[in-house]
């Protein structure tokens, strides 16, 4: 069994609208390992959620995958390129829910309000597996117990509105685990929750991973969540990978200026009251007006005149991590270091 679960190479997802093309995901590279947690971080508009929708092929029109590959490795050694599958094909439907499932941010809007949580969870098993209704029910109750929903047998016939926010998110996790998937994609699973409930849900996800060996791709903008649960981290900006690294390397020795800026802008508990936060100047550019050169050039504190605003850096491979910045390019690194004419 390969250690790699999903390899995304040069993935681009564009929205061709009347006012222009929105490059939501633009040449993304990302590798998910089995039994590991990959956190994808970035500001709003960086393409995190669109990456998740692309993997599951649930893009809303006019969004479409225009290039790239997503090689998914099954447990038996077979592989499939998800990017080549028709979103409505039988094969894609078999992957969704059974091999890759999703946890959404707001369970209230992503669960059916008119079906009980029990029937919504067992439906997953009935669709994907050859089980009887009674078996599905028994397994659902077992799952609800496992995500620590008290009195699971009674909760089987509760409707989503009858549960609290934290409880609903647990039911959502149970639903994602219904068919014992290999990969769970969680899109901001704790953003709508209180800190205390967030801590409980993160603990639960960690525990489930330890027991069942699933891979988790966790999309978040909260670097605290990343510090808590990630093994690997991908930092995205304007649809591209800016840095991918092991979580310890990312926090202890961030390579890319954007990563450094993000880490500096978070109020940390070890800062003194009133200590100033690092500001990232400006804001994420309009998707129709992408800068020429490096995507981050308009806001980068370390940009070099005549280089960063002219050419776009590649994703350079470093020791165990990757970074999209000229300071890590063997060809340009010397020039970058000498050129101290920082673009004002």
């Amino acid at each position: 069994m390969s250690d790699i679960l999903l390899e995304i190479r040069n993935l681009s997802t564009y929205f061709e609208t009347r006012s222009g093309v929105v490059k939501a995901v633009d040449g993304l590279d990302l590798t998910l390992r089995r039994n590991h947690t990959m956190c994808v971080v970035g500001e709003s508009g960086s393409g995190k959620s669109m990456t998740a929708s692309s993997i599951l092929q649930i893009l809303k029109r006019p969004g479409r995958i225009v290039s790239g590959e997503m090689i998914y490795h099954f447990r038996d050694g077979r592989t499939v390129d998800i990017a080549r599958l028709d979103p409505n094909s039988k094969q894609m439907r078999a992957i969704r829910g059974k091999y890759i499932s999703m946890i959404f941010q707001e369970p209230m809007t992503s669960m059916s309000p008119v079906h009980t949580i029990g029937s919504q969870i067992s439906e997953m098993m009935l669709v994907h597996e050859d089980v009887s209704k009674a078996e599905a029910k028994a397994r659902t109750i077992e799952l609800l117990t496992r995500v620590r929903i008290p009195d699971a047998a009674a909760r089987f016939s509760s409707y989503p509105f009858q549960l609290s926010g934290g409880m609903r998110q647990r039911a959502m996790i149970a639903m994602a685990l219904a068919c014992r998937p290999d990969l769970v994609i969680a899109d901001e699973p704790t953003t709508a929750l209180d800190v205390t409930t967030q801590a409980n849900v993160l603990n639960l996800m960690r525990e489930i991973q330890r027991e069942s060996g699933i891979s988790i791709m966790l999309i978040t903008h909260d670097l605290g969540v990343v510090a808590e649960v990630a093994d690997d981290v991908t930092v995205m900006y304007l649809g591209r990978t800016m840095e991918q690294a092991n979580v310890f390397d990312l926090f202890n020795a961030p390579k890319h200026p954007y990563t450094r800026a993000l880490l500096g802008s978070v109020p940390r508990l070890d800062l003194q009251r009133g200590e100033r936060l690092t500001q990232i100047r400006g804001m994420v550019p309009n998707p129709f007006a992408r800068p020429t050169g490096c995507p981050f050039v308009t806001r980068c504190p370390e940009r070099r005149f005549g280089l960063c605003d002219r050419q776009e850096p590649d994703l350079y491979r470093l020791d165990g991590s990757t970074s999209r910045c000229f300071q890590h390019d063997p060809v340009h690194a010397a020039a970058w270091a000498q050129n101290d004419e920082v673009l004002a």
Binding site: A199, A227, E228, N252, L269
Partner: peptide, 25 residues
């Protein structure tokens, strides 16, 4: 104390510090 314990750590180096989990609602 439980609210403070629930704050996510600011760096992965601080993971695994012992803390009380607040249950219930």
């Amino acid at each position: 104390a439980s609210l403070i314990a629930a704050i996510p750590v600011s760096s992965p180096n601080l993971r695994g510090r012992p803390r009380a989990e607040l249950t219930g609602e």
